[in-house]
């Protein structure tokens, strides 16, 4: 017997004596994340309905594969072949690793899924079911330290998705200066992504957190205080931006399949 049931500890049979609904938060997290993963997997493999009239789904941007519909590519740039070992790859699968890796190694999501999926621990002061635990000290979890790499990649992606939002200021005919509901959806989703990235712990560290003497770097200190304020809300940005991306994709898909019409304001 280990943990709270070790022979030296106070003899209490219950795994936890908490009387509140401690299981609610991990249950919700589990539900939401699980649904997202199912939907994202389906969409990643679908390989269609990701582009319509200057609206591109964030799941498929940047579209780098030869399989991409030409309008969705960046000036026709398709460095990646459509097939690898005779296996047709959806354009989403090529790039998915970056946003996925970014979120998987995010300090906040780590907390969320370690609790909700791994039950390590399910909630505070609730005994976890595992008998062994080594944390993030060895493979594979030591790879969490690669978060910084994904953070940089994430910034590049944010640039692409912001570019997509700008493109959506075109009319169906390709004329600039128009705006539709789709424009708003892409703008909101890319803005939330910027907030998510800027509030990232790695961002906070690189921008100033790593300094020993703030007073010697007044500008970085100022930036650090701003990023710290955003960082305070990182959890919220993580969920909002996830919802933003998911909704942007749903919206584009609905428009692409013709289920919804993209309404133009002007």
């Amino acid at each position: 017997m280990s943990g709270v049931f070790s022979p030296t500890r106070a003899n209490i049979k219950e795994r936890t004596l908490r009387t509140d609904k401690w299981w609610l938060e991990p249950a919700i997290t589990f539900g939401v994340l699980f649904s997202f993963v199912i939907y994202a997997t389906f969409r990643a493999f679908e390989g269609a309905n990701y582009y319509k009239d200057h609206l591109i789904s964030p799941f498929y941007s940047p579209c780098l594969s030869e399989a991409c519909v030409p309008e969705a590519t960046i000036f026709g740039w398709t460095p990646v072949s459509a097939q690898i070992f005779n296996f047709a790859l959806s354009p989403a699968l090529i790039i998915l690793i970056f946003p996925l890796g970014f979120r998987m190694t995010c300090y906040y999501y780590r907390k969320a899924y370690y609790r909700a999926f791994w039950l390590s621990p399910p909630a505070c002061a609730v005994a976890e079911p595992h008998t062994k635990y080594t944390g993030e000290t060895r493979a594979p979890l030591i790879l969490q330290n690669a978060h910084r790499w994904f953070f940089y990649a994430g910034l590049v992606f944010n640039v692409f998705l912001t570019y997509d939002a700008i493109i959506s200021f075109k009319s169906v005919e390709g004329e600039w200066g128009h705006m539709s509901v789709g424009t708003v959806v892409l703008l909101v989703s890319s803005t939330l992504l910027w907030f998510y990235s800027l509030s990232c712990h790695t961002c906070r560290h690189t921008i100033g957190g790593r300094l020993k003497h703030f007073s010697a770097h007044p500008v970085r200190y100022k930036l650090w205080t701003w990023v710290s304020a955003l960082n305070h809300k990182h959890q919220q940005f993580a969920w909002y931006s996830l919802a933003g991306v998911a909704f942007a994709d749903i919206y584009v898909r609905q428009v692409a399949t013709g289920a919804w019409t993209n309404f133009y304001f002007f």
């Binding site: 300090y107 907390k111 390590s120 505070c124 002061a125 944390g135 000290t137 030591i142 712990h201 305070h232």
Partner: peptide
């Protein structure tokens, strides 16, 4: 043992001084 911590934040949740231990 810093690497053993999986940043699940229970320390922060219970700290009576509201020290933001994890963040």
């Amino acid at each position: 043992g810093l690497g053993m911590c999986n940043i699940t934040k229970c320390c922060t949740e219970v700290c009576p001084e509201h020290i933001r231990i994890t963040d």
